[in-house]
């Protein structure tokens, strides 16, 4: 509503001053987004065409490579023949265990939300504390650097042994995978808060909690968000490992289950789902970061 109302106003203003070489100024001022529909369509095509072509070529190559007699993997045509249902109806429900991939993704996202949410909270808090102290940083950083490289699957047995229960163990695997980049980045962000901001806080006598929310979090926000972005990616990476334990209807367990019953085409569809959702999560956190740190980028 607002944008359509606001748009005519500058044009009216331009018409009100006919003496000016309006056409010249207008061309310069006008942002490229306001191209004519035809040209915008052409621009869109130019962006979409290359990936579509590459995709089609890849499918063709895949089809050729896997349609021979000795092929171990199914060709795309077989994927379509055997798993069209999964592609076309993401939200079907045939029974408690037999649901569309959309539902499975949502279930997995819920787990990721718990694991990643906890990792975000703990990572920012612990990172803030550690970043405040040079000695803690020096003492702990080497360990974080080691722990951060441990792959999600490797945490699985430890997690199971510690929790003795599938659900918390799965969430812990996600948590422990995602927390390190968040923690390390927050600590780095806090350490890099300019001394001037600290001095402002000291003159104002801000308390610990006030300092945390009013100075530390906003000042370190760009660092924190790049940590969160890496963290959400890792959480999603950890989902398959985590769901091997939990069973149920998650997308990770679906892959495990499909493997056990040799439904290779289903696995391929699930992989595409996981990739697309992962991309979406990454963009989402990136967008949130840009919204939060808007206007403070240079500082």
């Amino acid at each position: 509503m607002q944008s359509t109302l606001a748009r005519p106003i500058p044009q009216a203003a331009e018409q009100a001053t006919p003496a000016r070489p309006a056409s010249v100024t207008r061309l310069r001022v006008r942002p490229p987004a306001r191209l004519s529909p035809g040209r915008r369509g052409a621009g869109l095509a130019a962006r979409l065409l290359p990936p579509v072509v590459v995709g089609l070529l890849a499918l063709a190559a895949w089809e050729l490579a896997t349609s021979g007699p000795g092929a171990t993997l199914p060709p795309p045509s077989a994927v379509w023949r055997d798993s069209a249902e999964l592609i076309l109806h993401p939200f079907y429900v045939y029974g408690t265990q037999d649901v569309g991939l959309g539902w499975r993704v949502l279930t997995s996202l819920e787990r990721v939300a718990y694991g990643f949410g906890l990792a975000a909270m703990a990572g920012v808090l612990i990172g803030a504390v550690i970043g405040q102290s040079v000695w803690m940083m020096r003492g702990l950083d080497p360990f974080f650097q080691v722990l951060r490289t441990v792959p999600p699957l490797a945490w699985l047995p430890i997690s199971l042994a510690a929790f003795m229960d599938n659900r918390p163990a799965a969430i812990f695997v996600i948590f422990i995978t995602a927390i390190w980049p968040i923690l390390i980045n927050t600590a780095a962000g806090v350490r890099n808060i300019p001394a001037d901001y600290r001095n402002v806080a000291r003159v104002l006598r801000l308390g610990q909690v006030e300092f945390f929310f009013r100075i530390m979090v906003p000042a370190a926000a760009p660092y924190i968000f790049s940590g969160l972005r890496i963290g959400i990616g890792l959480s999603w990476l950890a989902i398959v490992a985590a769901e091997m334990l939990t069973g149920g209807v998650g997308i990770g367990f679906f892959i495990w289950d499909a493997w056990n019953s040799s439904r290779l085409t289903d696995i391929i569809v699930a992989l595409v789902y996981i990739g697309l959702v992962g991309l979406m999560l990454d963009r989402l956190v990136g967008l949130a970061g840009r919204l939060v740190t808007r206007g403070t980028g240079g500082a």
Binding site: V200, V203, R205, I215, P218, A219, T293, G298
Partner: peptide
Amino acid sequence: APGPDRAVVFQNHSLLPWLTVYGNVRLA
């Protein structure tokens, strides 16, 4: 110790970039 009874105008202004002009003053 530092305190608001000795306010400082810093050499490089030191405004908090994530707060508005109003927000910076209002915080104090």
